[in-house]
Design a protein around this nucleic acid. Sequence first.
RNA 1: GCAGCUAUAGCUCAGUUGGUUAGAGCGCUAGAUUGUGGAUCUAGAGGUCCCCCGUUCGAGCCGGGGUAGCUGUACCA
Length: 487
Amino acid sequence: MEARLPRGFGDRGPQELAAMRGMLEKIRTTFELYGFEAVETPFIEYTEALGKFLPDLDRPNEGVFSFQDDDDQWLSLRYDLTAPLARFVAEHFDALPKPYRSYRHGYVFRNEKPGPGRFRQFMQFDADTVGAPGVSADAEMCMLMADTLEAVGIKRGDYVIKVNNRKVLDGVMEAIGLAGDENAARRLIVLRAIDKLDRLGPEGVAALLGTGRKDESGDFTKGAGLEPKAIETILAFTSAKADSALDTLANLGVVVSGSAIGAEGVAELAEIASLVAAGGYEDGRIVIDPSVVRGLEYYTGPVFEAELTFEVKGEDGKPVRFGSVAGGGRYDGLVARFRGEPVPATGFSMGVSRLLSALSVLGKLGGQAEAQGPVVVLVMDKDQIAHYQKLVSTLRQAGIRAELYLGGSGMKAQMKYADKRHSCCVVIQGSDEREKGEVLIKDLILGATLASAPDREAYLKAQAEAQFAVSEAGMIEAVHKVLARHA
RNA sequence: GCAGCUAUAGCUCAGUUGGUUAGAGCGCUAGAUUGUGGAUCUAGAGGUCCCCCGUUCGAGCCGGGGUAGCUGUACCA
């Protein structure tokens, strides 16, 4: 049998885990600063509880991982943290304070093709406000997004939070005659085309809105089949973004003129813009951008997403496209599915895995590179293991991470082992030292700097300088000293 | 899903017009060099040449099918 992992899943080593722990802690601190409280839901929910937003209930494994319980009911691994929260809020509605402000993090699962920064299991960190109808809740989400990105080490100017509104998009649809249920499918195609603006450019989007588009491998994607005039309207909409929020809003107002829902959306955006400005975030951190769509069907109002603005290059030197590192929006219909009464809600998720992956490609995780390993006590004489074990215990009781070498190899291999563990130092006691009641403490980091020598003899001589003998009683103090030297 | 490309040692890859026992570098293990990470030297382990079928006296190499991976595209709640 071959040891292998399904694609899109990954094992995580100590440095990645440490980086993730650090990032989660920073996000949590920021979210709590805003007054959100922790709540967690399980990995698995009833498939129907995750939403009618599944693309196709007849094929429950399309997009989500699903399986049947022993009572034949369909269960699914959660694909985000929002749908489970909606279930939780609906179930405990009467006991929760309204508005209810909560956060959570955890792995979510998507059964789809992985890519750079895209995994089938990934970590999200999520914040939601349920029961707040006004756009001030949406504006707060945008500001929290900005503060959180900076808390995890992304500099101001290296990210942008783009805000749009589903109602404005609906207004545009009305303007090109795609209103009504009978046009829902075509509206979706149009929305997806708009979503690709940053990747394909206006020409690519125009092709997708019209007859279709051929990609570089020669594959053809069928278009929405819109009239040239309608395409023009949409491109006018996507290019409505101007240097200032006021100008952008004015442009949007023109595109949606005549549509009540569109005007409402623009008014909401205007209010968000002024709230954001009042908070001091209108310095390029949070901008109105009509090209933001968000794929989800459940959004009903403002939508927002965070993107990194610097270029990330892969190993081949080509730019890597990571997509958004956080996203969210208003979903007034999601809790209502369980309660039969409208419950306004808004929230967003940070893509922790994607952020980590972007920062690591960027080399920005290097700071905490290799954590220091434990002190290793070498085994020089196998019949003295009990005594070596006692030395290890002594170190541990002093709060020093330490371990006994448990392998079967010789001294040289033991040194190599300690090296690979990134140990700061090793404790050596051969028969010479034992007779004197001493131990040798070798500083491996100092030793590494003395490694270049013309021959073996000189090398060993240099290595001897990196070690010193102390009495067994003085071991703790000496090890502390070496650890402090390299802290 | 669709399209293109790829598949040989743990990793990166050679492998001639189809020809005996499939190689290199790195890594790994052990030994030598006084009881010490490096350097050097010696030795060793490690392969279903992705799988199946076909062509051929003979296939790592040619043909067909399958599988997996990569890239693009679609989808991404």
